[in-house]
């Protein structure tokens, strides 16, 4: 129960965000499932890894892969799936506690929480960058090899 409940809440929040972003009606559920997937990966790997920056990185890699694959399958922009799925991973709590520590003049705690929050945001960015660069590279290699094979077939016929 402790593992399933956060995933369901993330799903609900992502679905509501899909309405706010005006996502096409037939893709609402698919995009909200991305938010659930990110949380699921986070919760599952929590059993093995204790460093939460790496957990955020893994969750982001999972949702970016999901978004890229679905975007190719449904022939629609990746942003539709990625923006919605990313939101449950945004460190809202980190921003709040950083601010709270600074108000209570606990500067040391504030700085360490702030840097932790920055690291998490960095992990989100790195996860997205890794996946979409790799997917782009694979796509380009596939297109190139396809045209090469075509040329070979043509060339073979001519001779």
């Amino acid at each position: 129960m402790n593992y399933i409940a956060p995933c369901l809440y993330a799903f609900g929040a992502s679905l509501a965000f899909a309405f706010v972003f005006n996502i096409p009606r037939n893709k609402l559920l698919l995009s909200a499932l991305g938010g659930m997937l990110g949380q699921l990966v986070y919760v599952v790997f929590q059993l093995v890894i204790s460093n939460d920056v790496i957990l955020y990185l893994l969750a982001t890699i999972a949702i970016s892969l999901y978004a890229e694959v679905l975007a190719r399958l449904t022939k629609s922009p990746t942003t539709i799936y990625l923006a919605v799925a990313l939101i449950p991973l945004v460190p809202g709590g980190g921003i709040y506690y950083t601010m709270l520590y600074f108000i209570n003049s606990e500067i040391d705690l504030g700085i360490s929480t702030g840097i932790h929050t920055l690291l998490i945001s960095g992990a989100l960015a790195v996860g997205i960058i890794m996946v979409s660069s790799t997917v782009n590279l694979v796509r380009k290699v596939m297109i190139k090899s396809k045209t090469k094979i075509r040329k070979k077939i043509k060339y073979g016929k001519n001779t």
Binding site: T79, A83, I87, G92, L124, I128
Partner: peptide
Amino acid sequence: IIIGSIMTLVPGLAITNSIRDII
């Protein structure tokens, strides 16, 4: 409650688009 309700204001699309533009 505060953390939960400020998540409505989080600029999710701006974050995603800025990363994708930089890539």
